[in-house]
Design a protein around this nucleic acid. Structure first.
Length: 232
DNA sequence: GCGACAG
DNA sequence: ATCTTGTCGC
């Protein structure tokens, strides 16, 4: 009954070999934020927001709805959320230099968290920013914004616990694809704006929740651009 | 065997 | 993730 997962585990191990952990060549200006909500148990709503680090404003927002085709199983989140996020991604006019994803990167049992899997399929740099730990050994970081401590997995540093705000629970950062931990931390820190969640992801999450209730599904859906209030 | 376990 | 209001504290 669970040989299916064994098959997927092999796939993850195979794909993880293709993940590149390297420093980002240039500091990014356009940072994306990707998140998913569920208007109903059978459908997923994916959102990607493009945030301009220079102007500190949202440049573009896109979303997509897709039937859920996989259950939530810790360690296999990417098979559930990657489809709808890819669908939303192709609707972007502006391609982000790096995409922050709500979930783990290489800090995963088989080195292929949602951020890594998505980055691999999109061939763009991605960063995993999770609100809870999935695995690893670490010490709590100091209660000061920007403070962080490494997360070890079998003696190797795979990510970091980052304090984004004083007196608030930290977030778990790890490289997704085409980026390393140092670059990832720099980007996440530069994307903070006083809240626990970095701005690109926070904006994506807010939109994901707003659209979830605004009843969905009708022609003309899927695209939102700066300035204009609604859909083209 | 038991507990943990991203969203 | 989702079901859900008020309340305590910086």
């Amino acid at each position: 009954m669970s040989e299916k997962l064994d098959k997927l585990k092999e796939l993850q191990e195979e794909l993880s070999k293709k993940v590149k952990v390297v420093p980002l060549s240039h500091f990014p200006r356009l940072v994306g934020g990707a998140d998913v909500s569920y208007p109903e148990p059978s459908s997923a709503l994916g959102v990607i927001v493009i945030y301009d680090l220079k102007t500190r404003k949202v440049l573009e927002e896109v979303f997509a709805v897709e039937k859920v085709s996989f259950p939530y199983i810790p360690g296999f989140l990417s098979f559930r959320e990657t489809p709808v996020l890819k669908k939303a991604f192709v609707r972007l006019k502006n391609i982000p230099e790096v995409l922050m994803v709500d979930g783990q990167g290489i800090l995963h049992p088989r080195g292929l968290g949602l951020a890594s899997h998505l980055g691999l399929e999109l061939s763009i740099p991605t960063i995993g920013v999770a609100k809870k730990p999935l695995l690893g050994q670490f010490e709590p970081p100091e209660d000061k914004p920007g403070a962080f401590s490494p997360i070890f997995v079998q003696g190797e540093i795979k990510g970091a616990v980052l304090r984004t705000r004083k007196g608030v629970k930290p977030v778990y950062v790890s490289p997704g694809h085409l980026i390393d931990l140092d670059s990832a931390l720099k980007v996440v820190k530069a994307s903070l704006s006083g809240y626990r969640i970095p701005e690109p992801l926070r904006k994506a999450h807010l939109l994901t929740q707003r659209l979830r209730r605004e009843c969905c599904d009708y022609p003309g859906w899927g695209h939102r651009q700066q300035g204009r209030g609604e859909n083209p």
